[in-house]
């Protein structure tokens, strides 16, 4: 079964990746400080031409990819929202329970800041006891000829 097979391959290279991540700590940490962000130059394997992550562009992105996606997909992160404290608690929980390796404080701070910036808590409008149905479950605005979204549509969000 292909999925299982793929999982197996991940496991085989897991410790190799841990090594890469540890080696990468220093340059990554410097990047996180905002000196001069420059991409790491670990060689791509021939034939690879895809970007492994849907993470938002921004300072700290590489750190998040390097430290988070060894165990799980980017999707587990990007579908969630939290504030700095929440993201930090989650990281600490993963270290305690899920086998996430230790992070030096600078790295952890940079990761938390990135996550709280791009995957932060939504503003007040989201604090509802029952959210509106999501956009993809909504019918057309009206049966009249299609028009640009009306302000009325926005109110429901």
């Amino acid at each position: 079964m292909s999925i299982a097979q793929a999982g197996d391959d991940i496991l085989k290279i897991r410790w190799f990746v841990v090594g890469i991540c540890l080696l990468a700590y220093t340059p990554l940490a410097q990047t996180a400080e905002g000196e001069s962000p420059k991409p790491l130059t670990i060689a791509k394997e021939p034939g690879s031409n895809f970007d492994a992550s849907n993470f938002a562009a921004g300072q700290g992105r590489e750190l998040v990819i390097a430290n988070c996606t060894a165990c799980h997909s980017d999707k587990l992160v990007t579908q969630n929202r939290s504030d700095s404290q929440g993201w930090r608690e989650l990281i600490n929980w993963m270290q305690k329970k899920q086998g996430l390796w230790p992070l030096d404080p600078k790295t952890e701070d940079a990761i938390v800041e990135y996550l709280a910036t791009y995957y932060g808590r939504p503003q007040v409008a989201d604090d509802t006891r029952r959210p509106a149905l999501p956009e993809h479950l909504m019918p057309p605005i009206s049966s009249s000829p299609p028009t640009p979204p009306s302000p009325g549509r926005k109110i429901r969000d």
Partner: peptide, 26 residues
């Protein structure tokens, strides 16, 4: 970035056609 490519290439190579790019691309 490089680290994650290092991680994902072997994963991708063993996925059946049609599954790889969508699973991990944008």
């Amino acid at each position: 970035m490089g680290a994650v490519l290092g991680l994902n290439i072997p994963y991708a190579r063993n996925m059946p056609a049609g599954l790889i790019p969508a699973a991990l691309a944008d």
